[in-house]
Simulated scan of single mutants.
Amino acid sequence: MSIKLPLLHRDCPAGRRPPGRSVRTLPLFVRTPLPPPERRAGPGRVPYVAEGDYSRAGGEAAMRELLARVTELDAVFVASDLMADGALSVLEHAGRGVPADVAVGGFDDSPVAAGTRPPLATIRQPWDRISAEMVRLLLARIAGEDAPTVILPTELVVRRSA
């Protein structure tokens, strides 16, 4: 049984990455039923969310925190491939198999994604289109025009980690 969870980006409205701000490591899905609400909630925290900083060390720290807090965790979606690499390392040291025990998904499809053990499932962004749209929107703003919100497609890259 799979339960899809909403993706929450409290620190990243519209999916933007604010410079210098923390991001969240989020579960992509869980394959087992969630525990009762009284076990999921705690004072001032969301138990299925851990903070990271887009570094490998940040991914390691966030995964250690999640594993300590959520023993039934069986899948995570990580905000960057580099953080996911750190999460994979912690899972291996904890004796948790990927994807047998915990499925892991990353974001960016950076070169690190294909080199992890196991290779990381990830979300690919269209960097060429992102760059072109940023320039177009910047030029529109300079010209005094309103710049609309642009949503570009992403692509799921399926690899062995999920």
Rank of each mutant, 00 (worst) to 15 (best):
V98G: 01
D53K: 11
L28H: 06
D85G: 12
D128T: 15
V98T: 06
P13Q: 04
L7V: 15
K4H: 14
E155L: 07
A100I: 02
G42E: 13
G106I: 06
L152F: 11
R96V: 02
S55K: 05
D146W: 08
D108E: 10
A87P: 00
E65D: 13
S2K: 12
D81A: 01
V70F: 01
G59R: 07
T25L: 10
A140S: 08
V135W: 04
V46K: 10
G59Q: 09
R64C: 08
A140T: 09
V30D: 09
A14R: 15
F107V: 14
E38Y: 01
D101L: 00
I142A: 08
H93P: 02
P13I: 13
V46D: 12
E38R: 01
G20P: 02
G105T: 15
D101E: 07
P148S: 05
P119A: 06
V90P: 04
E51S: 01
G144C: 09
V104T: 13
A94N: 15
A94Q: 03
G58C: 09
A14F: 08
I130Q: 12
A61C: 03
P6I: 06
R124D: 09
R56G: 01
S89E: 10
G58A: 00
A140L: 10
L82W: 08
G20M: 04
D108Q: 03
V104R: 10
A103L: 02
A41N: 08
P19R: 07
A87E: 02
R141C: 05
T25G: 04
H93V: 08
R159C: 08
H9L: 14
E51L: 01
A140M: 09
T32P: 05
R24V: 14
L26I: 06
S110H: 11
A143G: 06
P126N: 02
G105N: 13
L73R: 11
A121R: 00
R31S: 14
C12A: 15
L34Y: 02
E92K: 07
P126C: 15
A94K: 04
G106N: 13
P119M: 01
